[in-house]
C-alpha cells in the first residue's frame, strides 16, 4: 500500500514537472505588448458597460495584435472590479473600464479607492441624465414641473436608481442649481432605471431622472414624456427635448465610462495604449457601435480625461455631502 502511494506521488509529481517545463514560453521580454491583455469590467456580462468593453476589446486586439479578453469582476456595486483594476500589476497587461461610480463610492465610505489610483487613458462615453414624467401627467414642460415642486414640496417623488446613485445625484444637482431645496422632490430608491420607469408608468412615482436612452422604448410607446436633457447639447434622437441650460439651469450630469491603467504603469507603455485606444475610439466601427448602442460618445484623451475625473470627483463630493450621503 505504502509503496503504491509513494510511487503514485512520484508519478504525479513528475508528470507535473513535465507539464510545467516542456515548451517554455518565448523567454525574451519583447516589445509591449507581447502577451494577451486583460480588460477588467466591474459590471456583469451583458450589461451596457460590458458591451462597450467587449467592443473595445475586439478593436483593441486589432490595433495591438494581441488578444484582449474581457474579465468581469462584478460585486460590491463596482467596488470589486475597480479595486482589482487599480491593484493589478502596473505592466500594461491589465486595463480597466472605469465608470462614474469611481467618483462616488469613496464618498459613501464603501471603499477607500479613488480615481488617484489610476492612470487615465481615454474617456469613451457619457449618457446624460434626463427628466421624464408619465405621459398622463399634467406637466408638459420642465418649468411646470419645477413650479409644482416649489408649490408642493415633498409631494412629487423621483426615482431611477438606488439612493446615492448617479440619477439621484442628477436630481439633487438639478434642484440645487434651480434654487429649490433638494428634499422638495424626495428620492424613492429603485434597483435600476427599468424598475423606476415601471413605477413611473404604474403611477408609483412622478418623475424619473434616468437617461432618455433608457426611457426610449416607453417614450416611443407613448407612455412616458421626456421634459429635459442634462447635457450641453440636445440629443439628436430627441431634438424637441430642451437641455437644462436652455432653461436657465446651469447643470449637466451623466453616467460615463473610460479606460484606465493602474497607477505607476511605465509612461512608454501608457503611450502605446493611449495611441491604440485613440485609434479605436475614432474608428468607424466604434462610432457605429456606440450610435446603435445607443450610447452617447464623449471622447477625451488621457490628459483631459484626468482633469475630467478630478472635476467629477469634486462635484460628486459636494453634492453627496449636501444630500447627507457621505460617511
Amino acid at each position: 500500500m505504502r509503496r503504491w502511494i509513494s510511487s503514485g506521488l512520484i508519478l504525479f509529481l513528475s508528470a507535473l514537472v513535465l507539464v510545467t517545463t516542456l515548451p517554455a514560453p518565448a523567454a525574451a521580454q519583447a516589445k509591449y505588448p507581447s502577451r494577451p491583455i486583460q480588460l477588467i469590467c466591474p459590471w456583469a456580462a451583458g450589461g451596457g458597460t460590458d458591451r462597450i468593453a467587449r467592443m473595445v476589446a475586439v478593436l483593441l486586439e486589432k490595433e495591438l495584435g494581441q488578444p484582449v479578453t474581457v474579465v468581469n469582476r462584478t460585486g460590491g456595486s463596482g467596488a470589486v472590479g475597480h479595486t482589482a483594476g487599480a491593484t493589478a500589476a502596473p505592466d500594461g497587461y491589465t486595463i480597466t473600464i472605469v465608470t462614474v461610480e469611481l467618483a462616488m463610492m469613496h464618498w459613501m465610505g464603501l471603499t477607500p479607492l479613488t480615481y488617484r489610483e489610476f492612470t487615465p487613458a481615454v474617456l469613451l462615453n457619457i449618457d446624460p441624465a434626463g427628466v421624464q414624467v408619465a405621459a398622463t401627467s399634467e406637466w408638459k414642460t420642465l418649468k411646470q414641473l419645477l413650479d409644482y415642486v416649489k408649490a408642493n414640496p415633498g409631494k412629487p417623488k423621483a426615482s431611477g436608481t438606488g439612493k446615492g446613485g448617479i440619477w439621484d445625484l442628477a436630481r439633487a444637482g438639478m434642484l440645487k442649481t434651480a434654487g429649490i431645496p433638494i428634499d422638495a422632490m424626495p428620492w424613492v430608491p429603485s434597483t435600476g432605471a427599468a424598475t423606476g420607469l415601471q413605477e413611473l408608468v404604474a403611477g408609483g412615482v412622478q418623475v424619473v431622472t434616468a437617461s432618455l436612452v433608457e426611457g426610449r422604448p416607453l417614450i416611443d410607446a407613448g407612455k412616458v414624456r421626456p421634459l429635459a436633457h442634462m447635457a450641453d447639447k440636445r440629443d439628436p434622437a430627441f431634438p424637441d427635448v430642451p437641455t437644462l441650460k436652455e432653461q436657465g439651469i446651469n447643470w449637466t450630469m451623466g453616467a460615463w465610462r473610460g479606460i484606465a491603467l493602474p497607477k505607476g504603469t511605465p509612461p512608454e507603455i501608457v503611450a502605446v495604449m493611449e495611441k491604440a485606444l485613440d485609434k479605436v475610439v475614432k474608428s468607424k466601427e466604434f462610432v457605429d457601435f456606440m450610435n446603435k448602442g445607443p450610447f452617447g460618445i464623449l471622447y477625451k484623451p488621457a490628459a483631459e480625461f484626468g482633469k475630467f475625473l478630478a472635476e467629477q470627483d469634486e462635484t460628486m463630493g459636494v453634492l453627496m455631502k449636501e444630500a447627507g450621503l457621505t460617511r
Partner: peptide
C-alpha cells in the same frame, strides 16, 4: 470586505 458590498452571492 469589498466583496460583501453586493451581498452574499
Amino acid at each position: 470586505i469589498t466583496e460583501l458590498l453586493n451581498g452574499v452571492d
